[in-house]
Simulated scan of single mutants.
Amino acid sequence: MPQQPLRDWQPAPTPAREALNGQYVRLEPLDPARHGDDLWQALQGPDSDPLLWDYLPYGPFGQRADFDAWLSRHAASQDPLFFAVVEPGSGRAQGLLSYLNIATQHGSIEIGHICYGRVMQRSVQASEVIYLLARHAFANGYRRLEWKCNNDNVRSKRAAERFGFSYEGLFRQHMVIKGRNRDTAWYSIIDSEWPALAAGYERWLAADNFSADGQQKQRLEDLR
């Protein structure tokens, strides 16, 4: 059956280099001068996650100079467009991630390059980051939000499913990363799905869904 033309379709705008504010976290355009010390500590310090770099095409970094050069390249990029994840109370950067594969003419955009310090992992902040980026993308006219990861990366696949992304399939022998084969699992959210997903995120992020010690009362999967 032939596809119907989109009514009044206009390409989505290129994402602006601007801060996104949430309840528990703030996304700031990556700035090595402002965020570099915090990110070095969070991502390479003694309490960092030793598995962090396993499925990324870069890192770990043995020298601070190499790390700073990597941050500077990311900060100058438009696609990927990088954000530092900042804890509002302390102002400390706890991780970074990006939009990438920004196809404005098709209304498609991806979230990736996720590098979190240990304190960010499996936290309310980590979930709110995805909500903020998804909300921003769909509010600006994007039709499709993508998530891709190494098929061996169980943590990333579980996260995609928890965040409401739908599995679309496996690209076999898609890449060679650090001398190893990567089969890539593809996930997406489309614009028609976002209103219901957004409502679930907002119910989950509400202050009354968390106990005094920060434990969730209802799971995101159940609320969305």
Score class of each variant (00 low, 15 high):
Asn150Asp: 15
Gly89Thr: 11
Arg118Gly: 09
Cys149Val: 06
Gly117Ser: 09
His136Asn: 14
Gln121Asp: 12
Ile102Phe: 05
Ala137Tyr: 08
Gly117Arg: 03
Leu100Cys: 07
Tyr116Ala: 01
Ser123Gln: 08
Ala134Phe: 13
Val129Phe: 09
Leu71Met: 00
Asn151Phe: 13
Ser127His: 08
Gly112Thr: 13
Ile111Glu: 02
Phe82Tyr: 13
Ile114Gly: 00
Ala75Phe: 11
Leu97Gln: 14
Asp152Leu: 15
Gly89Ala: 14
Gly117Asp: 02
Gly117Val: 06
Glu128Ile: 03
Tyr131Ala: 03
Ile111Pro: 00
Gln121Arg: 15
Gly95Ile: 01
Gly95Leu: 02
Ser90Phe: 04
Pro80Tyr: 06
Gln78Ala: 15
Ala69Glu: 04
Ala139Tyr: 02
Gly117Ile: 08
Pro80Cys: 03
Tyr116Val: 05
Tyr131Val: 08
Ala75Thr: 13
Lys157Phe: 05
Asp79Trp: 04
Glu110Met: 12
Leu71Gly: 01
Val85Lys: 02
Ala84Ile: 07
His74Gly: 12
Asn150Glu: 14
Ser108Glu: 06
Ser98Tyr: 01
Leu96Met: 13
Arg135Gln: 15
Gln125Thr: 07
Glu146Thr: 15
Phe83Ser: 00
Gly107Ser: 13
Leu145Pro: 01
Ser90Tyr: 14
Asn150Ile: 02
Ala126Cys: 05
Cys149Thr: 06
Asn101Arg: 12
Pro88Glu: 01
Ala84Leu: 04
Gly91His: 08
Thr104Met: 10
Gly112Pro: 14
His136Lys: 07
Phe163Asn: 06
Ala84Cys: 09
Val129Glu: 11
Arg144Asp: 03
Ala134Leu: 11
Arg144Lys: 15
His74Lys: 12
Gly141Cys: 05
Phe83Cys: 01
Ser98Trp: 03
Trp70Pro: 07
His106Gln: 14
Ile111Lys: 05
Asn140Ala: 05
Gln94Thr: 10
Val129Ile: 14
Val124His: 05
Arg122Ile: 08
Glu128Met: 06
Arg144Tyr: 08
Phe138Thr: 07
Phe83Leu: 05
Val85Ser: 04
Thr104Trp: 01
Gly117Leu: 04
Leu133His: 13
Phe82Lys: 09
Arg118Ala: 15
Ser72Arg: 11
His74Gln: 15
Leu133Met: 15
Ser98Met: 09
Gln125Pro: 03
Ala137Glu: 08
Arg73Gln: 11
Arg92Ser: 09
Lys148Leu: 00
Lys157Pro: 01
Arg92Cys: 12
Ala126Glu: 00
Pro88Arg: 08
Phe138Met: 02
Ala160Phe: 07
Ala93Arg: 01
Val124Gln: 09
Leu81Trp: 07
Gly91Tyr: 00
Gln94Ile: 02
Gly112Met: 12
Gln125Cys: 06
